[in-house]
Design a binder for these strands. Structure first.
Lengths: 110, 110
DNA sequence: CAGTATCCTAGGAGATACTG
DNA sequence: CAGTATCTCCTAGGATACTG
């Protein structure tokens, strides 16, 4: 817990009162970053996020869609063509991410 | 994942480059809040953090101490008297927490 | 008071294989 | 291409009991 190593999670449970914010899964932050420069397709995301497998990426994307951080647009056809794009909410979250990242850079001893 | 419910965790894995920030355990954020107004003893913390058990609180505190977010001062004697206090680093983290909390308040639909 | 010591469980996450 | 379906593993975190 509370380390600066491998896994990066930031706990906001006690922010103000209930219900608190959760962006705590392993890949949401990375997805936010990947979509920062515009919409991307499933496979493109999977490629940029080195290490995710389809199942986990799907779960992450579905959750983010449900929370209105991104939209999923199925352009139909075969082979399929699906695009993911940030919403305004999703985009605004990146600012929070940046704040925290700045803090990390500043306070990371090594 | 990526919800606004019960559990509050904020993923910073992809912040800048490696190694990323981790404040992601369940109680660190709450401990930060509890110590905001000054040092507290183990039992006092445990009481304010409704729901932690001693084992988990100890783990959390040890990790935060290792990361220099707080200090542990054993005043000795019997019964024991141990105090936990935020460091400057720990205190500065609260600002980040606040940023994220403000975001949550602003974007929480319900 | 301030912890250890044990045991146990839920679920996040990965590997692998398959499909419309 | 964009996913499902399974199975398995790991560990954060909780319950309970005990101690210097």
């Amino acid at each position: 817990m509370a380390t600066f190593d491998e896994a990066g999670v930031f706990d906001l449970r006690e922010c103000a009162d209930r219900p608190p914010l959760r962006v705590g899964d392993k890949w949401s932050g990375a997805v936010l970053r990947c979509l920062e420069d515009g919409p991307h397709r499933f496979t493109a995301l999977k490629a940029r996020l080195r290490g995710v497998n389809a199942k986990v990426l799907t779960e992450t994307l579905r959750a983010m869609e449900r929370d209105r951080w991104l939209t999923r647009t199925d352009h139909g056809g075969n082979p399929p063509h699906v695009e993911y794009a940030l919403t305004g909410t999703g985009r605004s979250l990146i600012g929070v991410l940046d704040t925290a990242c700045a803090w990390a850079r500043e306070h990371q001893a090594n």
